[in-house]
């Protein structure tokens, strides 16, 4: 029945990994500003333009 110990150890370990991720993200300041990232992620990816090339950014096509 020692499999229970092992399972518990594994499940706690997984939980602790997530807990560590939480602590890391708080420390990293991810909880300080909950708004800006939501806007930032909607920016078009870098409009990569070689010099002279016409930007082909058609927002209506790329969204959705």
């Amino acid at each position: 029945m020692s499999v229970i110990y092992m399972l518990l150890a594994i499940s706690l370990l997984v939980a602790l990994v997530f807990f560590a991720a939480f602590v890391f993200s708080v420390r990293n300041g991810q909880f300080d500003d909950a708004y800006t990232p939501s806007v930032r992620m909607l920016f078009e990816d870098e409009v990569v333009k070689d010099k002279g090339e016409v930007p082909s950014a058609e927002p209506s096509e790329q969204s959705n």
């Binding site: 939980a15 807990f19 602590v23 708080v26 909880f31």
Partner: peptide, 17 residues
């Protein structure tokens, strides 16, 4: 920045679950 409350909340939530 005071992040104490977030830590406290996170720990309580973790333990509660």
């Amino acid at each position: 920045k005071d992040r104490r409350l977030i830590y406290q909340l996170g720990i309580a939530g973790f333990a509660f679950g």
